[in-house]
């Protein structure tokens, strides 16, 4: 039996995985009983990205988030449609740069926290003084 491999699936323009689509049997011999159970290989896009329209991938530069398991060179999946809350790992715009921090919102205080003692936290008067670019949902950590 031979199978025809369907087109490669990519998402949001960024290809994470190749997937095998709907194998089409060519008449030759007894059909495989596994045929009925094949629904395609695991598609990382489907599991890692909830809203492709507003999700971007960014690359991490620096070590200030090591404590959160986010290392230099890792890729972060960032959803811009999510509302940031206390504890979110966010990409914020600081001095014209996309910057990764842990957002802390406590009584009357908004803090952009680093996850590395060697880097200081940044205190902001109010959430409205901040431009939150997006909320990180996953880290593709290189092991």
């Amino acid at each position: 039996m031979s199978v025809v491999v369907g087109p490669r699936v990519i998402d949001a323009g960024v290809s994470l995985v190749s997937a095998l689509l709907s194998p089409v049997p060519v008449a030759a011999g007894f059909p495989s009983p596994a045929q009925d159970y094949f629904d395609g290989r695991i598609d990382l896009n489907a599991h890692l990205i909830k809203d492709v329209t507003s999700t971007y991938v960014v690359r991490v530069s620096g070590e200030s988030m090591e404590g959160a398991g986010i290392s230099d060179g890792d890729e972060l999946i960032v959803n811009r449609a999510l509302r940031p809350t206390d504890g979110s790992v966010v990409v914020a715009v600081l001095d014209g740069e996309l910057t990764i921090k842990r957002l802390r919102i406590t009584a009357g205080k908004v803090i952009l926290q680093s996850e590395n003692p060697r880097y200081p936290d940044i205190e902001v008067p109010a959430l409205s003084d901040l431009t939150i670019w997006g909320v990180a949902t996953r880290c593709l950590h290189h092991v």
């Binding site: 949001a12 960014v58 690359r59 991490v60 200030s64 740069e97 910057t99």
Partner: peptide, 15 residues
């Protein structure tokens, strides 16, 4: 080409 090329992703600073 930030959103279509894996080698050209936007950089986010962790510093």
């Amino acid at each position: 080409r930030y959103t279509t090329h894996w080698d050209e992703l936007p950089l986010a600073k962790a510093g």
